[in-house]
């Protein structure tokens, strides 16, 4: 099918875009439709969704670990599980980080520094609570020194249960977070 130059910029002419089925609102189905109709190399999407794609594909977690769960987090970065294939690269400064993986027991003495680090991160930012300790206190319920879940001090987006969770579970958590990020613009519009 031949495309006339300029036909895309003329809404009355761009038949393909107007005949998209109602349910195909997602970015990927958009791309598929465009491929089918031969307009390859052109993606039509909202800028918000483009930014969301960029964000979810380069999540930089703040490098820190608090207890035993950190060992599982470290092994997730190692070649066997290879966090890098999701664009997840550790970054040792909160200023350039996008996501905070709270891996381990949050003791009350550590609560203040964690809050400070979270506040130093630039928006948009997300938090993954890894392990039972970070989600709810885990084995340290009724302890005098442990915060009953990191959600008592900072907002949490994804909870990964387990003591410790396997690296696959953390990978699952990150994929869940990617879905959340991709859906954020649509959530904002109430879709």
């Amino acid at each position: 099918m031949a495309i006339e130059p300029g036909s895309l910029s003329d809404p009355s002419n761009s038949k393909d875009r107007l005949t998209l089925p109602e349910e195909a609102k997602g970015v990927w189905s958009d791309i598929k439709e465009n491929r089918k109709s031969g307009i390859s190399g052109v993606v039509t999407l909202k800028s918000e969704e483009l930014f969301a794609m960029a964000r979810k594909s380069s999540l930089w977690p703040l490098t820190f670990g608090l207890a035993c769960c950190a060992i599982e987090m470290i092994s997730t970065y190692m070649p066997n599980h290879d966090f890098d294939r999701f664009g997840v690269v550790t970054w040792p400064s909160p200023r350039q980080s996008d996501v905070m993986i709270v891996a381990g027991t949050v003791v009350k003495k550590m609560a203040e520094p964690i809050k400070l680090l979270y506040e130093q991160m630039a928006s948009p930012k997300w938090v993954i609570a890894m392990g039972s300790c970070a989600t709810c206190g885990g084995p340290y319920t009724r302890s005098y020194s442990v915060v009953m879940g990191v959600d008592q001090i900072i907002p949490v987006d994804v909870y990964v249960p387990g003591c410790p969770p396997r690296p696959e579970a953390l990978l699952g958590g990150v994929m869940e977070l990617q879905d959340i990020i991709q859906n954020e613009p649509r959530k904002k519009r109430g879709l």
Partner: peptide, 25 residues
């Protein structure tokens, strides 16, 4: 060293009563 400033009591002692968990916010 291990506890934070302002902690009340001595948790190693047998007589220490574990306080009810309070939340920060």
């Amino acid at each position: 060293l291990i506890l934070y400033e302002g902690f009340e009591g001595f948790p190693g002692r047998k007589s220490f009563e574990i306080p009810v968990q309070e939340t920060f916010y």
